[in-house]
Design a protein around this nucleic acid. Structure first.
Lengths: 345, 345
DNA sequence: ACGATCCTCTGAATCGTTTCACAAGTGGTC
DNA sequence: GACCACTTGTGAAACGATTCAGAGGATCGT
């Protein structure tokens, strides 16, 4: 039913090629035909059929962005960065939400391959080397976001999460905390594992072999699971209960904060909290959250630029690693001289 | 370079049509050829070309979702509802963020028209009847989200925002507040104007002709502009300064809360706050926010179902209106007997 | 007056899939 | 053995835009 270029040509009394030229190279068309064609387009309400265009061109004018959880403001900020760059390049972005589930991720990657997207930006759930490899073999550029590329054959934009974990832990130890919990363990996500590794390393280095680190493994990285984790922490006997909690992201941290507050535990006096990502809501929390800040939009922008650059023949793969920064706020501000353990020299 | 159905057919030693049948109606193909084709597909790494498919089919397998601000958790929740339904129907969702800007909105609508999406879900910025009308004329179903359809010729899923505004205002008046501010005025967004109308009506009705309502018009509906609005409120002389603020959404409310707290104004004792949307972060705020809750995911789900239903010949346009609910939390809990004005009987 | 040059315009070929009318083969029935 | 029904497989046509070799006409210099 919708009008085609043929219909426009007939209506305007010109050939099909001329209409195409008006659309794509208006300066190469005489003023008279140009106006006739424009009029016909307006009268018929003609709209280009992007599918036909793509079929001919061999590639679409879209980018695929695959994220773990669009409800997490960290990812909306990344997405914002991506769309800003994509827009400038005249590309649309197809946003895919995987909910941490490899099946959904695989399904979306297939979909993006079928759509012949010009590039894929992805925060992978686990090891989906096979899927990504086949995408890449087909000539689709892939850039890993928030995850370091394993080999030199691909681009990635990430953050040094080991350092991030270390920063958080060092800060708490320096504030006098001796029993620390890490919430977010064994999710299977490498990013999270690196944060944990940083925390573990720092605690071990600063506090020696003492058993001071409790690792909790929530089922997801959300506010709700954060609340559950806090309940777990509170269920521990007072003698071994951590005096500070490092969360793998800010959503967890907000959940922990909510539950602690609800149960009457004062933050930071009785229990300090450090989050991760420094989403905008962290500063607005009941107790403003100390958090490890990551350059969220910049991550997205950089990744989008890289994926566009991959199309160029002289492209060199690049692994960009940003440095996180600890932002100290109320939730960890109090000094805690733990009675059980003397101050470390 | 990527393999086509032709290549697969050649490789498998069958005809092109047979390959297509294996792809779309495998049961109508003999087991032998089916396996040969499957093997060829695997060997060549064949992936369907969705563009060609769409060209033939005349429509894509995507839905367009156009929102005002993806960084607003309200919209991510709506988006979640939409994608849930779309996924079940085998459709992908193209997410478009307009930043409240009509030009971007128009550009995205053109893009979606070119993509031949099966339907458009949109939270319109202002009056873009013309654009939507032309979309609809082309046969693309359009459903308005979070905005009541003006005529019976279209579907919409919205919330009774006049009631929402009224609920917020009545609650504050009942708590003893006599000077109230509404933050979010004259944004040009009908949703916001309705909230304002509800507030105005309730205040007028309950408090009579007294000049008790201050309307502030922030430049946007974000946390940052909320802070600015709070500064404006504080700049008012104490005698006329409002004792309660109703915000057009929770982001504004969080901003107001931050700024008031930073300036040492106690919430709710010196100034109460009521937000709108009841996003998850509202409950986690420095002072848990009283907010007008809207069924966010349900809005998205309902809208997606409606847009899918539009394709059916017996479709009847429907204007769904949900009722908002006031959720009272700390930020408005204190009772405020205003010394200037005696209690209303 | 002639060719060279430039500007417009034309229409067939092409991209990869789906569909459909039809051919070929198989097995069963009378 | 002729006929029918059924299952498989075939390949041309169509979807709508882009591209490109070349046709036609005007303009200019000599």
């Amino acid at each position: 039913m919708p009008a085609s270029i043929q219909d426009v040509a007939r209506r305007a009394g010109v050939s099909l090629g001329t209409v195409s030229n008006v659309l794509n190279r208006p300066d190469q068309v005489g003023a008279a035909s140009r106006e006739k064609v424009r009029a016909a387009i307006a009268e018929l309400g003609f709209v280009r059929n992007e599918s036909a265009r793509q079929l001919r061109a061999g590639a679409s004018r879209t980018l695929g962005l695959v994220v773990l959880d669009i409800a997490n403001p960290f990812f909306t900020d990344v997405a914002r960065g991506v769309t800003d760059v994509a827009e400038d390049a005249g590309l649309a972005v197809i946003l895919c939400n995987t909910d941490d589930r490899p099946e959904k991720e695989a399904a979306y990657l297939d979909l993006l391959a079928e759509q012949r997207v010009q590039g894929v930006l992805i925060t992978p759930t686990a090891d989906l080397a096979p899927h990504l490899e086949s995408l890449r073999r087909r000539g689709t550029p892939v850039v890993l976001v928030d995850r370091r590329a394993t080999g030199p054959g691909q681009c990635s934009v990430s953050v040094d999460d080991v350092l991030g974990g270390r920063l958080a832990a060092e800060h708490l130890v320096e504030r006098g905390h001796r029993r620390i919990a890490f919430v977010g363990g064994s999710s299977g996500l490498p990013q999270i594992e690196e944060r944990q590794a940083g925390v573990v390393a720092a605690v071990r280095q600063l506090l020696g072999g003492e058993q001071t680190l409790t690792v909790l493994a929530p089922a997801a990285l959300t506010v709700a699971t954060g609340r559950e984790a806090a309940a777990e922490v509170l269920a521990l006997p007072a003698a071994v209960r951590p005096t500070a909690v490092i969360c793998a992201n800010d959503l967890l941290a907000l959940g922990v904060l909510q539950e602690l507050t609800r149960r009457g535990v004062r933050v930071p006096e009785e229990c300090a909290i450090v989050g991760y990502d420094d989403i905008d809501f962290a500063a607005a929390a009941a107790v403003p959250l100390t958090s490890v800040r990551r350059p969220r939009q910049e991550l997205g922008r950089r990744a989008a630029r890289l994926v566009l650059d991959e199309a160029r023949p002289d492209h060199v793969h690049e692994q960009v690693v940003h440095e996180p920064v600890l932002v100290v706020r109320e939730s960890s501000r109090a000094r805690r001289p733990d009675p059980d353990h003397p101050e470390v020299p």
